[in-house]
Amino acid sequence: MRALTWQATMKVAVDEVPDPVIEQPTDVVIRVTSTAICGSDLHLYDVLGPFLSKGDVLGHEPMGVVEQVGSEVRNLAVGDRIVVPFVIACGSCFMCQRGLTTQCETTQNRESGTGASLYGYTELYGSVPGGQAERLRVPLADFNAIKVGSELPDERYLFLSDILPTAWQGVQYAELPEGGVLGVIGLGPVGQFAARIGRYLGHRVIAVDPVAERREMAERHGIETLDLTDDVLDRLRELTDGRGPDSIVDAVGMEAHGNPGAAFAQFAAGLLPDPLAKKAAKTVGVDRMAALLLALDAVRRGGTVSLSGVYVGAADPMPFVTMFDKGITLRMGQCNVQSWIDTLLPIVEDPADPLGVEDLVTHTVPLDEAARMYDVFKKKEDGCIKVVLKP
């Protein structure tokens, strides 16, 4: 089959790879009909290369049609249309029973000291082949496949795989008071949805992003927006009675604009021999923290900062004097996708499309164009906000 594979730092390619097969009786194999490029994939493109091997299949936002079914699968049949959450979990362990599927004790990667296995996301998370491919093996399928209807287009359901529940969890973790103001830093795909979810839940939302096309998209959904200017902190406070938003979602993460020193360190570490690069990442690695620092500065005293953007630095300096003085609550973590599906599925199937899930994709291209679109998405060229690949 054809699949998008990692080749080296800043280099991916679509290659022929072996077809997936049923390996465990609880597996299914699907024909992928749509799969997206996530902002988290860009971390693999230029930062996390030391934890990848040449030929690894990337991607963790797929959906498709079941083609093969393991002998112990009870809830799925050939021909079913499913969405695949990026988290692989068992549904029955101590953590899963508490809704913490990203901490699943069945698929947890104890050797690397990380949580549940993820599709297409490095040896740190199981080296599981990803979904930017023509076919995908889905382990523990009865719990890890979301069966959906056949009437609506893929784009209505696809984002249940990651970014929509990630944004929903980010807003839930923000713990907004009734009538509170939500700030959103970054209007990439997760930020777009976080802002819309804030509005859907009845809040005023103010979002910050340096890219005009992203601000324009958010404004179509009733979001107030600000450019990332030198005085953005002052402007956020001016718009909120001098206090700052009640809660802020950081939807950017470690690749924030600014922090040129950290940016160089990230890139340089990726060019080291893998054993040295891995040690550096696990001991002295730092993130670009401009978005997080802005959120901590801008949130009102006693407020909450919720991190949906990914951070991986082991030695990130944190402004604890400010955080302690302001009484800030900080919440974070990979999204426990399966825990939010029952809430989100009826919303995406609402004919009114209240979260505008069909107003996010800017580029739909064949799988063979995936390598080019990684570069376009990385550079934010051609108004690129969200890419969907069609295998």
Rank of each mutant, 00 (worst) to 15 (best):
G261Y: 06
L176G: 01
D41H: 09
H221S: 11
K11W: 08
T283W: 07
V32W: 03
P245R: 10
A251S: 15
Q169I: 05
P139I: 08
M318H: 10
R235P: 01
G313M: 01
E175V: 06
R135A: 09
P391N: 12
F86K: 08
G191A: 09
G383M: 07
P273E: 04
L176F: 10
Q169R: 14
P25Q: 06
P354Q: 07
V65N: 03
V286E: 07
G64V: 02
Y173R: 14
Q24N: 11
A212Y: 06
Y374I: 06
D15H: 14
V66N: 03
T5Y: 02
D142A: 05
D230K: 13
T304G: 07
V232R: 11
A3V: 13
E175P: 00
V208S: 01
L176N: 04
E61N: 09
P165F: 04
V211T: 12
A262H: 01
V284D: 00
G327T: 08
A207P: 05
D41E: 15
V305C: 05
L136H: 07
P366W: 11
F324S: 12
L276Q: 13
V29R: 12
R204T: 15
L307T: 01
E175C: 09
P354I: 06
L152P: 03
L294V: 11
R214Q: 13
E216S: 12
A3L: 12
A280C: 02
G186L: 04
G179F: 11
L176H: 05
V14L: 10
V184K: 05
Y200T: 01
Y157E: 02
Q172H: 12
I146W: 00
H257L: 10
T114C: 05
A77E: 15
L136V: 04
V29Y: 13
D359A: 14
P177F: 02
K279E: 10
R196A: 05
A174G: 09
G183N: 04
G198I: 04
A141Q: 02
S53Q: 15
K54D: 14
Q108E: 14
R31K: 13
L233R: 09
D46W: 03
R331A: 09
A269L: 09
T33F: 07
L48T: 00
V29F: 13
V387F: 12
G202A: 08
V181R: 00
D46A: 11
L355N: 10
I185G: 02
R288A: 12
Q97L: 15
P351Y: 08
V211R: 08
D246H: 15
D209A: 07
D353V: 10
V299F: 08
V83P: 04
T101Y: 15
Q108D: 01
G183M: 06
V312M: 03
S150A: 12
Q334P: 02
K282V: 03
L389Q: 05
Q266N: 12
S53C: 09
T5C: 15
G383N: 14
I88P: 04
L52F: 11
V284A: 08
A277R: 00
L182P: 00
G186Q: 06
R98I: 03
V387N: 10
G126K: 14
V310D: 02
G149Y: 09
L187T: 07
V171H: 09
H43V: 06
